[in-house]
Design a protein around this nucleic acid. Sequence first.
DNA 1: TTGTATGCGTTATCAT
DNA 2: ATGATAACGCATACAA
Lengths: 366, 366
Amino acid sequence: MIARVTRAVSTRPGHAFTRRSSLQTYDVATVTLKDVAERAGVDVSTASRALSPDKSSLVKATTRNRVVAAAQELGYRGNIQASALRRGRTGTVGVIVADLGNPFIGPVLRGIAGTLGNRDLLPIMTETRDLSSALSKVCDKLLAQRVDGIITTAGRYGDRGLLKRVAREVPLVLAVRDLPGSGIPAISHDDITGGRLAAEHLLGLGHTRLAQLEGPEDIWSFEGRAQGFREAVHAAGATCDDIRRSIRLPTIDAGRQLATELLDRGGQPPTAVFAHNDTMAIGAIATFRDRGIQVPDHISVVGYNDIPLTDQIQPPLTTIRLPGYELGRLAAELVLTHIDGARSATDRVVMAPELIVRRSTAAPRD
Amino acid sequence: MIARVTRAVSTRPGHAFTRRSSLQTYDVATVTLKDVAERAGVDVSTASRALSPDKSSLVKATTRNRVVAAAQELGYRGNIQASALRRGRTGTVGVIVADLGNPFIGPVLRGIAGTLGNRDLLPIMTETRDLSSALSKVCDKLLAQRVDGIITTAGRYGDRGLLKRVAREVPLVLAVRDLPGSGIPAISHDDITGGRLAAEHLLGLGHTRLAQLEGPEDIWSFEGRAQGFREAVHAAGATCDDIRRSIRLPTIDAGRQLATELLDRGGQPPTAVFAHNDTMAIGAIATFRDRGIQVPDHISVVGYNDIPLTDQIQPPLTTIRLPGYELGRLAAELVLTHIDGARSATDRVVMAPELIVRRSTAAPRD
DNA sequence: TTGTATGCGTTATCAT
DNA sequence: ATGATAACGCATACAA
């Protein structure tokens, strides 16, 4: 009944044997197409055709049924590795994220995984912690795995050369973080407008001394936000204090650091702050609280992303919504069309930001 | 210089050709071991040995260097599919999670990915949304991918049969959610003690009318928490109102629903509530706030997991810490030892919970 | 409609 | 220390 039993040993790969570890015994009794074919009384090629979704029409209904039945009875599961070797498709897509700890990434991953799953592809997940060295290694690994495509949310400007090279080998899609001028397909988000929305909201409330806590340099999303915010503030004749510092990841801790720097800078403190993402905003609020500065009474704070729970913190955070799930979904769809070799009319999608007003912003006191 | 150029066409798999989509051109100029061998002037078998970490000692230093140089120059990247087919190892581990949207899962995934990466394995990620049907499909897919092992955080009691079957085919490790009596290796967490700690904390504050908002049934973690909490409460002679309802995922929304049910139940409301995880706790607090019930003044709330940001919400949440990163790391290490076929003295690790007291709990008013 | 033959890229065995 | 060779499981061009 089982391949392992009816077959000579010779150079058979290790996993095909019943293996014994401490307590566990694995019956990796690999049922192959050959076993199915034998049981159905046909040739492997016929069995292959019968079980292949798009070739099964080439085989007579009755024999097809025999084959399918045999496969069922034996519990046959195609060997994707072998199939991949033969066809040049592995059914996997590499997914590269900068920081798995960022709550923003959950919905994005769900969007990706769900969409890939509908097409029977599986995501291989990797994290770079926003280190270029890690990105390089990770790309190598994914390429060695012969993934059918790659989606990355971890591209910095400095990675442009690397990613362009990767894009020549395999369909590559940038998600969240664009790399303008690279020509690499991207599903991103209009960060400039997002920054502008944040500024206009604060200006509309009457603020004139603003500041922004900038995310890591070298990353398009943050540069766009900075630019949109700064320009809108200056256009209104208000002042904008840019707090930038070489932080690597835009975390709560980074938010605390930048907020501290802002306060320690001396001079008139601003009455409103734009943090380049929600976690940094939360860190900043915590620092303000520690220093006895009330939000929004003494200082207004705007975040970015609208991660889960931002509406539950105190005060609920005013922020710019970035639709993570949808973005992940679109990125996956885009990489799929490229994998299919189809033309895509929409190689660059820029999603619209939306201002979510909650309680962390208010008119200035004076 | 490149395989594609110097080789006859015949039945060559699709991906080996330069492929043209809308704007993009892929040069998947697959450099094979054969190319490297030719360039180095040796046989493929020698090249293989030279490049294999553990066999490279069998080859003379000078030839090894030639091979390595040739590989370098050609940009050779081993084809893992082919290697997998031959050796029976794919270098991938399946990771199954219930809900990618749960912030708790980020650290766990990081622990897993990091540990696997150290050993040059890659995680393949899947989500079940806690649906048994999805789990079954996902296992099939992973098995068809011939993953070297599987780590799952998504096992319910009803999945025991399925998972036991899976465990017979491939090293399987349960993470977070144990399946007592299944004999499947597990890295879990002492949920009973966790529940007890929550109860003792509240009892110690003087509460006598308690309630718990229970997570989905059929899942060990939640059953353990429920049991530990209930027993400790009863042992102290206090009353424990168990709010259970068939929710599927323990989300903010579920927390709201259960809290609403608790309030609408009539009779004396409890003065303290134990929610089976942090997101449910946050939902409950939101509902209480909507109803004008202050936390902790009118009612104390304890959560579970200590997800990121629980210390930033208002009031900062008292909770039971479950060390996600560490747990993921241990799960990955365990699956690695089983993949290596080594015996593991520690097939069942139960991590200790820790009470984190913040501001959402206080003595009852009366 | 089905069978035969071949090769995908790699590694293990055997022989040299 | 190295080379020749076969086989891993599958899918396709071609013949029947």
